[in-house]
Design a protein around this nucleic acid. Structure first.
Lengths: 153, 153
DNA sequence: TGAAATTTGGCATAACCTGCCAATCATGAA
DNA sequence: TTCATGATTGGCAGGTTATGCCAAATTTCA
């Protein structure tokens, strides 16, 4: 799908505020409501917009600790990789997981309630996964930056 | 702010779909529309809901490459730290930046269009920041998992 | 148990969404 | 340049949804 200037403006406005009314959005992108809504629907159907979500304050929600866990596997056979990825997919503490180039195989982003919860997560979940050769955990002390609008492509 | 069971249900439903109508939301959490909307507004005003955003397909949007950059500083004086953090804040390629415990000081998540864009970003932006002692870049080969709903707290 | 405070549901009005159609604009060929 | 074709837009009408208010129900705490 080809994106023109108006599409980019719509996408950026909806990243800024995903719940704004179509009227407000239309005004921002200099369209009248009906073509604006039609474009949004097209962007949704084409999969450019994958969905909408509420952004929570993790602290207020009760999961104030964010950790990043770098994990390497002993072997990289399909079975080992698939087994690991399935195990990760089942862990609700793991918010995000990337397969990486470089010194570690995977980077996980994990949210937990407190240090006890962290310890439990490590002992009961991560350490139970077979084929893991190394684990390195870093706590996020501070979210220095969080942009929710991507730059123009 | 104290969150009861219904608040949690609302927050989880809005993470699932931040644009659903108040009517649909009310039904899901077993409330009638008016108290449901009132709770949502309260959660917004209390800052538990920090906002709403559209989730884009980075590939379709034209920024298909995600990289994680681990950076350490030479010194950790307030000036060095503030200088670095301000520099990062100004880079629109940097979507996220965390101050970390462990072997690296910062973890950056960066989105770029292609390898040329990556090279330009490194040369023109990152390498221009003073006080950086080490940089380690990893490309995301695959997003193995992405949960947009936090587990219950 | 009983009173106060909080929360809920229903209603009326206002705002918004959405599908349809004519008008406008962009595109490409002659 | 001109004209024809297709794509996109704007306005309108009807249906849906949001929102503020008030009485009723529920919870809380003494």
């Amino acid at each position: 799908m080809k994106l023109d200037k108006t599409d980019i403006a719509i996408l950026r406005a909806l990243q800024e505020d995903g719940r704004q009314s179509n009227l407000a959005l239309a005004e921002k992108v200099h369209l009248s409501p009906s073509p604006c809504l039609r474009r949004v629907r097209q962007l949704e159907e084409a999969g450019v917009i994958r969905g909408y979500t509420a952004i929570l304050d993790e602290k207020a929600y009760g999961l104030p600790l964010t950790l990043f866990v770098r994990i390497s596997l002993e072997r990289h056979s399909s079975e080992a990789v698939e087994g690991f990825e399935e195990a990760i997919a089942g862990l609700e503490e793991v918010v995000e997981c990337h397969l990486l180039t470089g010194s570690a195989d995977y980077l996980l982003r994990v949210v937990v309630a407190d240090l006890d919860d962290y310890q439990r997560f490590m002992r009961e979940e991560i350490h139970q996964i077979t084929g893991v050769s190394s684990i390195e955990t870093s706590f996020s002390l501070k979210r220095v930056k969080e942009a929710r609008v991507y730059r123009k492509p």
